[in-house]
Simulated assay, not measured.
Amino acid sequence: MRIREYTEADWAQVRPILTEVIEAGDTFPYDPAWPSEVLHDVWVERPPGLTVVAEADGRILGTAKAGPNKPGPGSHVASASYMVPAAARGQGVGRALVEHTLDWARRQGYAAMQFNAVAESNTVAVRLYRRLGFTVIGTVPQAFAHPTLGRVGLHVMHRFL
Rank of each mutant, 00 (worst) to 15 (best):
P147Y: 12
M1H: 08
P73A: 11
F144N: 01
L161D: 03
G150W: 04
Y30V: 03
G49S: 02
V93W: 15
R159I: 00
A9V: 00
I137A: 12
H155E: 08
P29K: 07
A96L: 12
H155V: 05
M113T: 01
L61K: 08
V152Y: 07
V156L: 14
A24W: 06
H100K: 11
M83Q: 01
R127I: 06
P29S: 05
T135L: 15
V77D: 02
P85W: 14
M1G: 03
E55D: 10
V126W: 07
A66E: 00
V14C: 04
V52E: 03
Y6E: 05
Q13F: 00
G62R: 05
T139D: 07
I137Q: 13
G62T: 04
S81Y: 01
M157I: 02
R131C: 15
K65L: 15
D103V: 04
N69L: 13
T63W: 00
G72Q: 11
G153R: 14
E8F: 03
F134D: 00
L61W: 14
H100V: 09
E5P: 07
H146V: 03
A56G: 10
V93N: 11
R131N: 15
Y82W: 03
P68Y: 05
H155Q: 14
I17Y: 00
V38I: 13
V52K: 04
P16K: 13
W11N: 02
Q114W: 06
V136K: 11
E20M: 02
M1S: 11
A111Q: 12
V124P: 10
T63E: 08
G90C: 01
W43K: 06
G94N: 07
T27C: 04
P141W: 06
S81E: 07
G92Y: 01
A9I: 04
G49I: 03
R159Q: 09
A112S: 13
M1W: 02
Y30I: 04
A119C: 12
M83L: 05
G67W: 00
T51S: 09
A117E: 11
T101S: 08
A64P: 02
L161G: 03
W104Y: 07
R95T: 14
A80C: 00
A9R: 15
F28V: 01
A119T: 01
R107Y: 00
L39T: 09
L61Y: 12
V98S: 14
L61R: 10
V140C: 12
R130P: 08
P16C: 07
R4T: 09
V53D: 02
E55L: 08
P32S: 06
P29L: 06
A56C: 12
H40R: 15
T63P: 01
L39E: 08
H158Q: 05
W104R: 03
A12H: 14
M1C: 00
V21K: 08
R46G: 11
T135A: 15
P85A: 14
